[in-house]
Simulated assay, not measured.
Amino acid sequence: MVEFKTIVNDVKTGKSYNVKVSGHHANSLNGKNIGEIVDGIFVGLPGYKLKITGGSDKNGTPMRSDLPGPKRKKLLLSDGLGFKERYPGERKRVGVRGSTISSEIVQINMAIAEYGPKAIEELLPPAPAEGAKAEKH
């Protein structure tokens, strides 16, 4: 059974929401590509439309929208997603994953494209802030 960690970004407020998707909702996301608009019912947001913006596999290999298919490939990159140059003109062969969601994908990033009737705070709890530390007692 496929299970995804889905990060839903609210573009109005800048908040992100972490949602686990499993079962038949996760199976219906298989085969979708980066840039596609999907129904929000898959992540518990009825009435919302979500745009798939990216993702990564279990090793943290990012998905690229310009690479078709679900396979992992090594590309010679000079800049862009999956590579940050250290000096001008640097190129490096970097492993990236294609733009199609498959069973090897663990995390899917989505942005809200169309808002529904209910507020998103009512339907989903906000994700903990990145780098947030537990308070010491």
Score class of each variant (00 low, 15 high):
Asn30Pro: 06
Glu90Gly: 08
Gly95Leu: 11
Pro88Asn: 03
Val38Tyr: 00
Gln107Glu: 07
Ser16Tyr: 06
Ala113Arg: 14
Leu67Gly: 04
Asn30Arg: 08
Lys12Tyr: 04
Leu123Cys: 12
Thr100Asn: 09
Glu85Ser: 15
Gly14His: 08
Leu75Asp: 02
Gly23Gln: 06
Ile112Asn: 14
Met1Thr: 09
Asn59Lys: 04
Phe4Trp: 02
Leu45Val: 04
Ile108Gln: 01
Ser103Glu: 14
Gly47Pro: 07
Asp39Ile: 08
Lys73Ile: 04
Gly131Ile: 01
Leu81Tyr: 03
Glu104Leu: 13
Val8Gln: 12
Thr6Lys: 03
Pro125Arg: 03
Glu90Ser: 07
Gly98Leu: 04
Ala111Arg: 10
Arg64Tyr: 08
Gly54Met: 05
Tyr48His: 06
Asn18Phe: 13
Ile108Ala: 03
Gly55Met: 01
Gly98Ser: 02
Glu3Pro: 10
Ser103Phe: 08
Lys49Thr: 00
Gly98Gln: 12
Lys73Gly: 03
His24Lys: 12
Arg93Val: 04
Lys84Val: 11
Gly40Gln: 00
Leu124Lys: 02
Val94Glu: 06
Lys51His: 13
Lys74Trp: 09
Glu121Cys: 14
Lys58Glu: 15
Val8Lys: 07
Ser99Leu: 05
Glu104His: 09
Ser99Cys: 13
Arg64Met: 03
Lys73Gln: 05
Gly14Met: 10
Val8Gly: 14
Leu76Asn: 09
Ile7Asp: 05
Glu90Trp: 10
Ala132Asn: 11
Gly40Ala: 03
Leu50His: 03
Pro117Ser: 02
Ser28Arg: 11
Lys49Met: 09
Asp39Pro: 06
Ile120Met: 10
Lys74Ile: 11
Lys58His: 15
Ala111His: 06
Ile52Glu: 01
Arg72Ala: 11
Lys133Gly: 13
Ser65Met: 09
Phe4Thr: 02
Arg64Ala: 02
Leu45Gly: 04
Pro68Arg: 01
Val38Asn: 01
Leu81Arg: 07
Gly14Thr: 01
Val106Trp: 09
Thr53Gly: 14
Pro88Gln: 05
Asn59Val: 00
Lys92Met: 08
Ser102Gln: 03
Gly98Lys: 05
Ile52Asp: 06
Thr13Leu: 13
Gly47Ser: 03
Lys74Ser: 13
Leu81Cys: 02
Gly40Val: 00
Gly35Phe: 08
Lys133Asp: 05
Glu121Lys: 10
Asp66Lys: 12
Ile112Glu: 07
Ile34Cys: 07
Pro125Lys: 02
Ile37Lys: 13
Val106Gln: 10
Glu3Thr: 15
Lys12Gln: 12
Phe83Arg: 02
Glu104Val: 12
Gly40Cys: 07
Gly131Ser: 08
Val106Leu: 15
Lys49Ala: 12
Asn109Ser: 12
Gly98Thr: 06
Gly54Glu: 04
Met63Leu: 02
Ser99Tyr: 10
Asp79Asn: 07
Gly55Tyr: 00
Ala127Thr: 12
Arg64Leu: 08
Leu50Pro: 02
Lys118Asp: 10
Ser16Ala: 09
Val2Leu: 09
Tyr17Met: 14
Leu50Gln: 01
Asn18Val: 02
His137Ile: 13
Asn59Phe: 09
Phe83Asp: 00
Val8Asp: 11
Gly131Val: 05
Ala132Asp: 11
Ala127Glu: 13
Gly35Trp: 11
Glu121Ile: 13
Ile34Leu: 15
Glu85His: 12
Val94Gln: 08
Ser16Ile: 06
Val43His: 00
Ala134Asp: 14
His137Trp: 10
Gly55Ala: 05
Lys58Asn: 11
Val38Leu: 04
